[in-house]
Simulated scan of single mutants.
Amino acid sequence: MKSRYSLCKIALLSSISFISCYSNAASPAMPNVITIATQAWPPYQIENGDKQYGYAIEALECVMTSIKQDYRVEFVPWGRAQSGTALGTYDGFFSASKHTGRDEYAILSDTFIEQKWSFYLHKDSTLATDLNTLQTKAVFGSRKHSNTLFWLQDNGFKNIHKFNHVDDLVKLLVNRRIDAIMENEILFNNALYHADVKSDTFIKVDNIEKPLGVYFGKRFLNQYPSFLGKFNQATQQCRFSQDNNES
C-alpha cells in the first residue's frame, strides 16, 4: 500500500532555521508506513505477481483499514522475517503464534487468526498415538523456523528432521519416510488438496490451539508505544476462523 505524502513546516527558532515534518496519514504518535514481513504460507498468506491475498492477509488488511494505518507486506524466507524484525529491518512479522524465543525481541499482538495443531500419522502406522510414544519413538518431520518445530523441541520430542515446506512433509508422510508430523490443520488440509491426497490417508490426533497474530519488534514499539493498544483494539472486529469463513 502506498503511503500518503508528508507535510513539512519551516520555522525559525533562536535564529536557527529548522524543518519539522509530519505525516497527514497519522498522528505524531503513529508511524507513517509500517513494514511487516511474512512468508508464503497458503492459504494464510499468498503472493502471486503483484497480488497478495489469503486468510491472514485479509484479516491484517481489516485491522489496518480500521485504524487508518498505511503499511506494506514483504514476502521473505521465514527465518529472515524473524531475524529482520529483531534487527529492526522490519517492524514486525506475521502470521505467528507465541513462543518465548520470539518474546525476547518482539511482542505478540492480540491473536485474531485461527490455528489448530494436530498430529498426523500414516493410516498404516503401528505406533501408539499417546504423547509419550510420539515423544520417544516417532520420527517427526517439521518446517524450519516454524513454531511447530519450536514446540516439538521444547516438549521433549527426540527425533525431528527439518524441511522447508509443508508440501515436503506431506510427501514424506505419504511415502512413510517419517512417522509423524504436527501441523496447522488448515495448512495441512490445503497441502493435501493441492497434492490430490485424501485426508483418510492419515490418522489425525488433536493437540492444541495456537491462534496467530502479528509480532511487532520491540525497537518499533519503543518508538511508537501507543500503536499496539490501538492495533489490538481493532483485532476484535477482524477475527478469522474457519467456521466463520464457511458460514
Rank of each mutant, 00 (worst) to 15 (best):
P31T: 07
M64N: 12
D50R: 08
Y5C: 13
A37N: 00
V170L: 01
Q242A: 13
K9T: 10
S23T: 15
S95E: 07
S3W: 04
L13I: 10
Q52G: 03
F119M: 05
P211E: 03
I203N: 03
S23E: 15
S20C: 08
P43V: 05
K116R: 08
V197K: 10
D168L: 03
K158E: 09
Y22T: 14
Y22S: 14
T35P: 03
R4L: 07
R4H: 04
F140I: 01
H122I: 02
F216I: 02
A106H: 02
I19V: 15
I34N: 02
Q45M: 13
S125Y: 08
R177F: 05
Y193S: 10
T126Y: 07
F157P: 04
T133D: 10
E183S: 10
D130C: 04
E61V: 05
S27Q: 14
W41T: 04
K116C: 05
F202Y: 08
C21Q: 05
F188Y: 05
R239K: 15
A96Q: 11
Y5P: 01
Q39D: 08
G79C: 02
R219H: 15
L60I: 00
F231C: 09
T35D: 10
T100W: 08
I19Q: 11
Y71E: 00
Y55I: 06
Q153D: 00
D154E: 14
L212A: 06
P31Y: 06
H99D: 10
Q45T: 15
Q223K: 15
R80N: 05
L12G: 09
S6W: 10
N245S: 13
A40E: 10
Q236D: 06
F75K: 06
S226A: 12
E185Q: 12
N244C: 00
N175G: 05
Y120D: 02
S15Q: 13
N32D: 14
D243F: 06
T38F: 03
K9L: 09
K162L: 09
L212G: 03
V205C: 08
R80D: 03
D50Q: 05
K123L: 00
L127K: 07
S17H: 07
A180K: 01
N32K: 15
Y215W: 04
